[in-house]
């Protein structure tokens, strides 16, 4: 169903009114949503990422035809028309945006963060991504090329983040727990585990 359903518009209107009246902030709403549901959707994406980290064959398939993988796993809760997974490396950092509206791969990432729809993020990430990412806590060396994927038509993009250092001893399930939604949008770099080898 479209985001622009009458009920979606009424909800958006209500939120704007309450924010304008100072009864509410968008962040307070975001925080509640994060608490109740953030792990539900992104968990699907996190499972794909963790499996790709441990299974080179799966990774290859994920990077060439993620759509059929998602279809075969039968993820619920949102359409993925066509999903493309792009891989972060030491040399290339990928980030995803929809400059025109807020196209977002619900099925693998769950609910989009409010800032994803923010016009400032949408316009600046394609013009000065290095600064925007730095502001979001992702400092990238000048030798790292940034690729911004604009989800502007029917294709949805998801980032395969770099496997954090110090995670050699973790299994797939433990790895999946490390993967955050923001890392799969490409606005977070996963940090290593502090004490490698201690995980049971």
């Amino acid at each position: 169903m479209s985001e622009e359903s009458p009920q979606a518009i009424r909800a958006e209107a209500l939120e704007s009114i309450l924010i304008e009246k100072g009864l509410l902030t968008a962040k307070a709403v975001d925080d509640v949503i994060a608490l109740y549901s953030e792990r539900v959707g992104p968990l699907n994406g996190a499972r794909l990422v963790a499996r790709a980290w441990v299974d080179p064959q799966f990774k290859k398939q994920l990077l060439t035809d993620a759509t059929s993988i998602v279809e075969s796993l039968g993820f619920e809760g949102g359409q993925v028309e066509k999903l493309v997974v792009v891989e972060n490396t030491d040399k290339v950092h990928n980030a995803v945006v929809c400059t025109l509206c807020s196209c977002y791969p619900w099925a693998v990432l769950g609910l989009p963060p409010k800032w994803y729809k923010d016009p400032a993020y949408r316009s600046r990430i394609v013009m000065e991504p290095r600064q925007v990412l730095a502001e979001m806590g992702v400092g990238l060396g000048s030798n790292v090329e940034i690729q911004v994927w604009d989800s502007s038509a029917e294709i949805r993009y998801m980032v395969l983040p770099v496997r954090p250092p110090g995670t050699q001893n973790l299994n797939e399930e433990q790895l999946a727990e490390l993967v955050t939604r923001d890392s799969m949008i490409g606005v977070e770099v996963l940090v290593g585990v502090e004490v490698p080898g201690e995980a049971s």
Binding site: A8, V29, D31, I33, G77
Partner: peptide, 25 residues
């Protein structure tokens, strides 16, 4: 589902979030 509230569409989560946030405030 599995102890989590299920939202079919994003607006539902916003409305849910608004109610809880207003209550907390």
């Amino acid at each position: 589902a599995n102890g989590d509230v299920v939202f079919d569409e994003p607006w539902q989560s916003r409305v849910f979030g608004m109610a809880r946030a207003l209550c907390e405030q």
